[in-house]
Design a protein around this nucleic acid. Structure first.
Lengths: 190, 190
DNA sequence: CTATTGTTTGGACAATCGCCCAAGGCGAAT
DNA sequence: ATTCGCCTTGGGCGATTGTCCAAACAATAG
């Protein structure tokens, strides 16, 4: 094991990021403290400000990293769609992996809110969302869905909206898919 | 007027609620402090815990009150719809009154998140959302939209999702309405 | 005028916060 | 063997937190 000092340092840094990803959903962005992250990561409190400029910087790095991973993950799955209907199916299946109260969903929403109070985070998060919209629009265009950009933007909003609402009251079982399928319907009447 | 002690007490209570409604969007739910609310309301710090059992209780009362008002307000507007298309038009116009970074939108999302950490708040907020879904489903049923309950649930999710995303990146101008209109299309192919 | 009731004040309390830093540990290079 | 550089420790700093409370206050009732 490369027991070099720099190597151990990288490991501690990773553990701090992982701890932050757990604690933001649990306690809320602004309630995550230096000492709590350190304890969760199993390291001394002082290490947080050695590896990161501030708690805010740690949370931002942790959250943006996870969200970027989610975007590329979902996009990879959607590549398999051969028709608009199948795309909705695949997207619904992805969304079904979360119930709105899971750490990933909560982390996303917490980051949205934190971004309204932090211009730097806002800019970075906007880029992630734009990336997701672009990828989704590309899939829709491949499948000849009309108005791919606008449909992608609304579809992305539906994903987060559904997660947000499902955390409060479960959506009628399997109700989302058929409704959303109308949204990408190629034969939409105007 | 009516300079009775109880009257002044009610007034202070109202001012505290109003202050809380301003501060939650500004600072985030868990970052609203006893002293900050008191200062914004122009009263002494001790008054918060005289009129409310805890800061949490004050925030919950303030948030739930505003959200309930929003639901009845939107529902009243939607009563005027004479067709599914017009309903989407009216709903879009309502949503356009907010841009996702306004106090009302942020208060809603903040409350969603706070509810995941407070069972009492969760139950109360679930009731508000259920009420909104029921009212919306009733409007849809009036207008002969197929599958009113499921469509209402998705439509409600779209509203919050659009607000959430618009706070980050503006949705292509007027892009939402035509896409969502497909969602309530009466002639949807299955 | 006195008693009662409800409201208000401003500070005390212990706990926690973000951030900082002097001091020590330890492998790598010389 | 000594120096160097990075990582780590644990506690100190002033500021802020939620909650509580003894005392002052005002207005009504007897």
């Amino acid at each position: 094991m490369a027991e070099t000092a720099a190597g151990r340092g990288r490991d501690v840094r990773r553990r701090l990021v992982a701890a932050a990803r757990e604690l933001v959903p649990e306690r809320g962005w602004s309630a995550v403290s230096t000492r709590a992250v350190a304890e969760r990561a199993g390291v001394a409190p002082g290490l947080v400000h050695y590896h990161f400029a501030s708690v805010q910087a740690l949370l931002a790095e942790a959250a943006l990293g996870e969200l970027r991973e989610m975007v590329t993950g979902v996009d990879a799955v959607l590549q398999r769609a051969g028709s608009p209907e199948e795309l909705v199916e695949l997207l619904a299946a992805e969304v079904d992996r979360f119930d709105g109260t899971d750490p990933a969903s909560l982390l996303a929403v917490e980051t949205y809110l934190a971004a309204t109070r932090d211009p730097q985070l806002h800019a970075a998060l906007t880029e992630v969302l734009d990336d997701f919209r672009r990828r989704l629009a590309a899939r829709l265009a491949d499948l000849a869905v009309p108005d791919p950009e606008a449909t992608a933007a609304v579809l992305a909003a539906v994903v987060d909206g559904v997660l947000l609402h499902r955390a409060l009251a479960p959506l009628p079982g399997g109700a989302v898919t058929p409704v959303v399928r109308r949204l990408v319907g190629t034969g939409a009447r105007r």
